[in-house]
Computed example of a mutant assay.
Amino acid sequence: MIFLIVILLGLIIGFLYVRYFPIWGVPCMNEPSSSINSLTVVDVRDYTQSYKDSEHESVHIPVGYLKRYFHEVPGGEVHIIASNFLERNISIRFFRRRGFNVTGYTLTDCACG
């Protein structure tokens, strides 16, 4: 019984960590800093939000579709555009696990500062 409680508690903590624990070492930027040739901008917002304020030549893949379509993102450096902290955390962790170098992120709902 104790074993099941420990496993259940571990799963809950892991789930909360992936979604809500902040990511260190990835700066918030208003604009991508590297040259546009070596950097891929990935917009992980919903299609309705990214369609309204599409500013960059970017790859549009909502967070829910990352597992299916991440192969469309060329390897190398990636800059994430997200609308909130939850999308940011999930997408940065996802791309890091797949071997991408996440150089920064932009949040559209709140300013960097």
Rank of each mutant, 00 (worst) to 15 (best):
K67Y: 14
P74D: 02
I90F: 06
Y65D: 15
Y47A: 05
R96Q: 14
K52P: 07
G75Y: 11
L107S: 08
V18R: 00
R88K: 15
Y20C: 06
F85T: 09
R45Y: 05
F85E: 13
E57H: 05
L16V: 14
V63P: 02
V26N: 00
I80T: 09
F70N: 07
E77D: 15
V42K: 00
I61Y: 08
R97C: 10
L11D: 08
R68P: 07
S58Q: 05
H79N: 02
R19I: 15
T103Y: 04
I13L: 14
H79L: 08
L9S: 15
S34A: 11
I81K: 03
G75L: 07
V6H: 14
P74E: 10
F15R: 01
F95R: 04
F100C: 00
E57C: 10
A82C: 15
G64N: 11
K52T: 12
N84L: 08
D53F: 11
K52W: 10
G104R: 02
T103I: 15
T103N: 09
I5R: 08
I13D: 01
I5E: 09
D109Y: 13
G76S: 10
L8M: 13
L9R: 09
M1I: 06
S83F: 15
R19M: 09
C28K: 00
V42A: 01
G25L: 10
R98N: 09
H56E: 06
Y65A: 12
R97T: 12
R45T: 02
Y51T: 09
I13G: 06
P62M: 06
D53G: 04
R88S: 13
L86R: 01
G113M: 07
Y69T: 05
I2S: 14
H71Q: 15
V78N: 05
F94G: 01
S38N: 08
A82R: 10
H60F: 06
R96M: 15
K52D: 15
C112R: 06
L11V: 13
I61E: 11
C112F: 07
Y17V: 06
N37G: 10
I92K: 00
Q49M: 11
D43W: 08
V26E: 04
L16W: 12
I23S: 00
R96L: 15
V73D: 14
P62E: 12
S58T: 07
V102E: 04
I92V: 14
G64W: 05
P22W: 02
Y17G: 08
G75Q: 03
Y105C: 02
Y51Q: 04
E72I: 12
I12R: 11
R19L: 10
P74M: 03
N101L: 00
Y51M: 07
R96F: 13
H79G: 04
V73W: 12
E77Q: 12
S38H: 02
K52S: 11
N89E: 02
G113D: 10
G76K: 13
D46K: 07
Y20G: 12
R45S: 07
W24Q: 04
E57M: 11
T108G: 00
K67C: 05
D43S: 03
Y17L: 04
P22F: 00
